[in-house]
Design a protein around this nucleic acid. Structure first.
Lengths: 190, 190
DNA sequence: TATTCACTATTCAAATTTGACTAGTTGAGT
DNA sequence: ACTCAACTAGTCAAATTTGAATAGTGAATA
């Protein structure tokens, strides 16, 4: 599963209400050319699919006074919000980096403890893959691509980095950074 | 561009001749569940596209004696080989990790010096992105996803790792590992 | 020997992604 | 006033990806 639905739902959730081009603008402004590469077309398609699945509804009212080309504004339904939470949770568990990125972007929508649980799951899965990669045989003059030391090496390094990054993220969350669901600014003790 | 065409062409190049399922088997055996995630359907589609573009040709002869369901065997044409080289070169330049992986898998098909040039280009591009990421503002309580310190941080770390991995790879190639195009086993000096 | 399971091999429809196109609005310069 | 470029907003066809369906063969087993 790609990150498009998660990003689109998240963009509308943040705004409360939004039309396609606004969602596109928001997402591309977040992306920084790197962690997202969502095209306009995919966004409009996702909006159609989400609408037909009753995750979002088109709002006719809104600023009819506004200028510019006509547009359709959408709001997220209850069902859509549930879907958003579900996508967000699997993004944080997934070991796909694009999904993790989107997950981090929206993680404060979940309770702190829940995020830590999900990242713990992710960590376990990353470690499994890393371990598996270490079991693969390599050959100095590789007889087939899967045995290329550089290929295996670069992937082991990647998973090592992902493990480290996940642990650092968890520590940062554990140490009280950011405001998660149900938390208030300026807390003293508790 | 995805890695499918590169992988399919590469798989046929390695075999000299191959049918779709063989290509699928080879690719999935290389992948180790991690660096490729190519589905059967995509391979057959790629074969059709490559055939219609005259990158490969179907061979009717071959082992007619072989058992099992009927199949179509393909060979790579001159044009296809040129395309393969071109895809391989852009894969090694690209800062997409999937493409780099496929590029590494086949890199010995190019001359050593050429691979180093391509990786040098990749390195420059990675450094540009890393520098760009450092210019992005962050906020401790992020007002929008793009300003999330964890998000930016995790991506900076990722590019740092990619830069490091590319440099290590280049050093390994420079130090004489592997046999590239035009090189022979068991060389003494020169 | 009939059944079931696993493997080989391909095809196809449906979902998704991409990139190009249309079209209205605003603002800057001439 | 006129033109041109840039931005806003959306649509659409074509390309690609996905996952399920089909179908043949061999091997095991009850």
């Amino acid at each position: 599963m790609s990150a498009v639905r998660l990003l689109v739902l998240g963009a509308i959730v943040r705004r409360g209400i939004a039309h396609g081009y606004r969602v596109f603008q928001d997402i591309t402004s977040w992306k920084a050319e790197t962690w997202t590469n969502v095209k306009r077309g995919s966004i409009y398609h996702a909006l159609e699919k989400l609408e037909s699945g009753e995750m979002i509804v088109a709002e006719d009212s809104g600023d009819l006074t506004k200028l510019g080309p006509s547009r359709t504004e959408y709001k997220v339904t209850e069902k859509g919000r549930a879907e958003f939470i579900s996508l967000l949770e699997s993004a944080l568990k997934s070991n796909d980096f694009q999904l993790l990125s989107a997950g981090i972007a929206f993680m404060e929508i979940l309770p702190r403890q829940r995020v830590l649980e999900l990242l713990e799951e992710r960590l376990a899965s990353l470690k499994d893959v890393e371990h598996f990669l270490h079991t693969l045989p390599t050959e100095q003059i590789p007889s087939e691509p899967s045995k290329h030391p550089e290929l295996i090496g670069v992937w082991i390094g990647y998973f090592e980095y992902m493990i480290e990054a996940t642990q650092k993220l968890m520590q940062s969350i554990e140490s009280g950074n950011y405001l998660f669901l149900g938390e208030k600014k300026e807390e003293g003790e508790i």
